[in-house]
Design a protein around this nucleic acid. Structure first.
Lengths: 224, 224
DNA sequence: ACAAAACATGATAACTGGTTCATGTATCAA
DNA sequence: TTGATACATGAACCAGTTATCATGTTTTGT
């Protein structure tokens, strides 16, 4: 049920900025050294995902997380510096998970336009499978604005690059790729919300098909 | 500086659903009966807008709101039922303010495609002028999900209608107007965030122009 | 086997901030 | 003027939190 396996390697960058300060104090937020530690850390992470996803950052309670993880309060702070810190770890992990999932599903698309459709379909499916995590990312806008900013900037950057390449190959028109990247992200996010989170009755492929048509031809009449 | 004049008439719908229960207790959240009351209420509202906008819902403090409004803590609860209640009032007001602003700027567009461009330009300008209020709407997703849902559903509904009319007139192509409406909203919101909130160095008209091109022609090469 | 390091505990300190309420004061209708 | 209603006050209440720390237990390397 929980998709947070293979988390361990991805959590150090959270506090990465000023980590040159290697204090002699216990370094929370770092990968544990023993198997027991890793197990515990993972349990806390899983519990946190559930708690944050269900209640949101502010309503979420550390004591509920630790209880649900089957450890004592203090243990939380052995592994994480603070409530915000574990939240950031979750957000950062989400970015990777999402990108990886979409990348896989898009890998063998013959061209950019097909990739757009498959990518959107994959995204909607992903959202449906991870409503909680989707919420976490959205809420990071207020809890950890820089994490949120980075999350989408990362997306936009690679998006932009692929658009540029596709334009060079003539697969798509020329245009302002930065703007187009953000537009496409906006489309995904809102369709993901509308047809992924709020109402999952329409097949993802159908939504993706309709959107792909809009993305390809725009609103111009008689364009095809 | 503050755009919350003409607020009074719009705040009753917040608790409107089950208001048949006309208790004998002081009805907070209703329009005050005397001039003094209206003045005070407005002061609180203005202060709340600033406070919520700057700090976000959870960091915002009632005592700072009342202090900034020049009234005592208790006075807040004479006029509003709770912290969440005033927040909802603000969100609902934002919807009207935004729609009105855009509607004005789009009123005399000759066709739908032009309206799209002008509307986006107006929206970006609006966001730049009202960063605080924009933030309030976004955060409502977590504080008052139903208010958020209604906010965008309202937008989508009227958007959809206009697309349908435009398609009937042949100004734009046929398509799934619900999906297209949500896509267009997504574009606006993300461009608004990227070029309105995060970076306002590019002229709104330029952003709108680029986006309008994408909206009109899509990514298809050689379409024009 | 033994010390050192890593990990775990959980009661509680220390605090925050929304909401209440008993008690006023202003306003208005008659 | 007077009674009733509307509005205002702000100290105190209170529930709920995060984070700490002194003390244990497990694991690891030698």
């Amino acid at each position: 049920m929980n998709q947070l396996s293979c988390f361990v390697q991805s959590c150090n960058e959270a506090e990465g900025g000023d980590s040159a300060v290697s204090s002699t104090k216990p370094v929370a937020d770092a990968t544990p050294k023993t198997a027991r530690g890793r197990r515990t850390r993972q349990n806390i992470l899983d519990a946190a995902e559930k708690e944050f996803g269900e209640r949101g950052f502010h309503e979420a309670a550390i004591n509920r997380i630790t209880e649900s993880a089957g450890v004592a309060m203090g243990t939380f702070y052995v592994h994480f510096e603070s409530k915000e810190s574990i939240f950031r770890a979750l957000v950062s992990h989400m970015g990777q998970l999402t990108r990886r999932w979409i990348a896989e599903r898009v890998a063998d698309a013959p061209d950019r336009l097909t990739a757009e459709r498959l990518g959107l379909e994959a995204f909607i499916e992903f959202v449906r499978q991870h409503r909680d995590l989707y919420r976490i990312v959205n809420e990071s806008q207020f809890v950890a604005p820089d994490a949120y900013h980075e999350y989408y900037s990362e997306f936009a950057k690679s998006y932009q690059r692929r658009l540029r390449e596709a334009a060079a190959k003539g697969e798509i028109s020329q245009g302002d790729d930065e703007q187009r990247a953000w537009s496409l992200i906006g489309i995904s996010v809102f369709l993901g919300m509308r047809y992924g989170v709020w109402d999952d009755s329409r097949p993802a492929s159908e939504v993706a098909k309709g959107a792909a048509d809009f993305i390809e031809f725009g609103l111009k009449p008689e364009a095809r």
